[in-house]
Amino acid sequence: MSTPPQPPEQPEQPSGAPAQPSAYPYPNPQSPAPGGPLGFPPAAPAIQTGQQSVHAQPTLVGVGQPAQPQPGNPYAQPGQYPVVGPPPTGGGGAGKAVLWAVVGAVVASAAWAAGVFLISARNDADLRGYSAPSNLCNSADYSSFQDEYPEDDGTPTHNTLEDTALDQGYCSISLKKTGSSYSDAYLSVQLDLHKKTDPGPEFTATWKNYGDSHSGYDVEEVTGIGDEAYLVSEDTTSGTTTGSRYATLAVRDGWVTYTMGYSAYLSSYDDDKDPPELDEVTDWLKTDTRATLASLSD
């Protein structure tokens, strides 16, 4: 009996030769499907090679193994550019535009914040046009007292302070009645220009509550001078031949504060030397403070 013809024997694959292409991209039908719990990428599209379709093998990234940068995308090269926001997709211009837009927004935001801070720090001081003179004794108006105390003080005491946080002027004047060889009363004036901090809360706490911290003083709120003003006074001469009369008018106008204070001692040796009544003194303080503040804010 004749032997039926046999199909030609397939040539043996040489050692190390690549396997023949297969239409199934995974080693065997039991391989896990793409998109599983380890995040495998989807199957690669088929590539036409001659008469047979071959699937390109996807590059799988193992657990704990860093992804390799894609060629042609400079932003994916480690250590080349700062990572800001989501990474750009692909190597095209759209990804670069997104990155630079985010970087630009961050830089612009920081610059804006710095600018607001600097402008705020520079412009917050509400000085209302006031300036501190080099000698406040020459600028303070106390003409209301000069009928009662006509003798001039030839050597009033004054000092000044000029700093980035505070400008200050101070003056102390001796008041003398006609024929007096010594001081019958004293005036003190002080101007403070607060250039870094708002003195309002502390000013109010100090002067509005002065009677709580100093026994025997009367406190009166005065309207029509600055943003707020308080008149603090004390008279210990009632029913006695000796004692003192004291009054201070404290004013805040914006971030500027001004005080004008009067003090006198009642002597039993010469009735002509007695100080004026306290009501007169407080009226003079109000009149001269208004005049002084008007001249210092021109």
Rank of each mutant, 00 (worst) to 15 (best):
P4W: 01
P5G: 01
Q6L: 13
P7T: 12
P8V: 15
E9P: 11
E9L: 11
P14M: 11
S15W: 04
G16D: 09
A19R: 13
P21A: 13
A23F: 01
P25A: 07
P27M: 06
P27Q: 04
N28W: 05
S31K: 02
A33H: 07
P34F: 08
G36Y: 07
G39F: 05
P41V: 14
P41I: 10
P42G: 10
A43T: 09
A46P: 15
G50F: 07
Q51E: 12
P58V: 06
T59D: 14
A67P: 12
Y75Q: 13
Q80S: 08
V83S: 09
V84L: 13
G92N: 12
G93L: 13
A97L: 15
V98L: 14
W100Q: 07
G104K: 03
A105I: 09
V106Q: 11
A111E: 00
G115C: 02
S120Y: 11
D124M: 09
R128W: 06
G129I: 06
N135F: 00
L136V: 07
C137D: 03
C137M: 04
F145Y: 13
D147G: 15
E148Q: 14
Y149S: 10
E151Y: 04
E151G: 12
D152I: 14
T157H: 09
H158Y: 15
H158M: 08
T160C: 00
D167Q: 13
G169D: 06
I173E: 01
G179P: 01
S183A: 14
D184E: 05
Y186D: 14
L187C: 06
V189L: 10
Q190S: 14
D192S: 11
L193I: 09
K196N: 08
T197S: 10
G200W: 00
F203E: 05
T204V: 15
Y210V: 11
D212T: 12
S213F: 09
H214F: 09
G216D: 08
G216R: 03
D218F: 03
G224F: 06
D227C: 05
A229W: 05
L231S: 00
T237V: 03
S238M: 03
T241W: 05
T242F: 04
R245P: 08
Y246R: 07
A247L: 05
T248M: 12
L249S: 08
L249T: 06
V256D: 07
G261N: 13
G261V: 08
Y262E: 09
A264N: 03
L266H: 01
S268L: 09
S268M: 10
D270N: 15
D271Y: 10
D272C: 02
K273T: 03
D274W: 03
P275W: 12
E277W: 03
T282H: 02
D283L: 01
K286D: 08
T287H: 07
D288R: 06
A291T: 10
A294I: 03
L296Q: 07
S297G: 09
S297C: 08
